[in-house]
Simulated scan of single mutants.
Amino acid sequence: MPKSNSLQICLVKTGPTTPMITTLELRPLGNDTYTTQTGTLKLLDRHYYASESDIFGIRYPDDVYDRKWDLVFPSNEIWINTTANVNQSRPFELPQAVMKRAITPKKATEPLTLLFLSDENPSDKFYVYFHFAEIQALRANDSREFDIVWEDTTFLPPYSPKRFQSDTLFNKLPKEQGTVKLVRTKGSTLPPLISAIEAFKVMDLPYSETNTDDVVSMKNIEAAYALNFISWQGDPCLPRQYKWDYIECSYTSISTPPRIISL
């Protein structure tokens, strides 16, 4: 999931044969949807909950962004649904087919264990997006409030889903691997509830991309003079051994975007 407005895909030859590609599909997303402080995001899991007799997976046109939602059958939870519409909220614009369904624990006093995030590299970091909507008609004395707990640490304040309104919570800073649970608060009369979840791993890039303004300028020069150099593909300054021909770059540090200093 890159963050730039443009993208060049490179097929790298690693053997005696010629690289080839049949199809490439891209989906634009708003800059305020999935964010990360550094690096880019790799999707690990995106699922919603439904019964075994329900539809199998959701994509476009149900999801305007053509995200692929995988179906998970609840085994140790209670599955609930509604026929009423759930109001959407920007920027995530979740499908009705996802938000009209939810799960709660079979035992109202027990936590709802959502997923266990782990990887071979213990230093890996993760972002998790939790999608909620209260789809049950609550009585006057009913309340639903719970903590979101990551490896026995509450990292978000007590939360109550909005009535028939989609809402999304996520960790603002990347977190390490561990178990994620929804834990009912002492003042709540109802167990926790969730409609869908997305988990991403942070992919730290070895270098920052070349300064965006410099790249735009080079593209303008390339178009104005109808230049057609084979090496002018991908990032102009990176990797350094494959830098564009006829330019020189300034490299300050790994975290600082390189600058094009001469042409």
Rank of each mutant, 00 (worst) to 15 (best):
L7M: 14
K13C: 08
K13L: 07
G15A: 14
G15V: 08
P19Y: 06
T23L: 13
E25S: 12
T35W: 08
T36I: 13
Q37G: 11
T40H: 09
L41W: 01
K42P: 00
R46N: 02
E52R: 13
F56C: 09
G57F: 07
G57H: 05
D63Y: 05
D66F: 06
D70V: 07
D70H: 11
F73V: 13
W79L: 10
I80W: 09
I80V: 14
I80Q: 10
T83M: 10
A84D: 13
A84T: 08
Q88G: 07
E93N: 15
A97L: 15
V98K: 07
K100L: 05
T104Q: 15
P105C: 04
P105E: 00
K106S: 03
E110A: 14
K125L: 13
K125N: 05
Y129N: 01
F132M: 05
A133C: 09
E134F: 01
Q136A: 07
L138H: 07
D142H: 10
V149T: 05
W150I: 01
F155S: 02
L156W: 01
F164E: 02
D167Y: 01
L169F: 04
P174F: 00
T179D: 10
R184S: 00
R184H: 01
T185H: 09
G187Y: 03
P191W: 01
P192G: 01
V202E: 09
L205Y: 03
D213S: 12
D214C: 06
M218D: 02
A224W: 07
A226N: 14
I230P: 06
W232T: 01
P239K: 10
Q241L: 10
K243V: 12
Y246K: 11
T252M: 11
P257H: 02
P258V: 00
